[in-house]
């Protein structure tokens, strides 16, 4: 399973995305606002989710903002940090 696929499954489960399946999530769709419709509270939850599932700490939201653009961006961010 690719990081992006794993992420989609985690997002649906951990954020209780109602009426959305992992397959429905477009890799490039924005996570916040339009797109998945997440908000500021989901953003901080996402920080915890990344910590819990990937062991990566995101120290502040400036760091998070870039990574949280889309599933593709987040997967790239995670893969990049796991390699280094």
């Amino acid at each position: 399973m690719t990081t992006a696929e794993k992420l989609k499954k985690i997002l649906v489960e951990e954020l209780n995305l109602e009426e959305v399946t992992p397959a429905d999530i477009d890799d490039d769709a924005p996570l916040f606002g339009e797109g998945l419709g997440l908000d500021s509270l989901d953003a901080v939850e996402l920080v915890v989710i990344i910590q819990k599932h990937f062991g990566l700490e995101i120290k502040d939201m400036d760091e998070g903002r870039t990574a949280f653009q889309s599933v593709r961006a987040l997967a790239a961010y995670i893969d990049g940090r796991l390699k280094s």
């Binding site: 509270l41 901080v44 939850e45 915890v48 819990k52």
Partner: peptide, 17 residues
């Protein structure tokens, strides 16, 4: 539960709110 299971750093802000 969230922080007892996974440590204080994994406390769920959504549950807290």
């Amino acid at each position: 539960d969230s922080f007892i299971n996974d440590g204080d750093i994994c406390a769920s802000p959504t549950h807290f709110a």
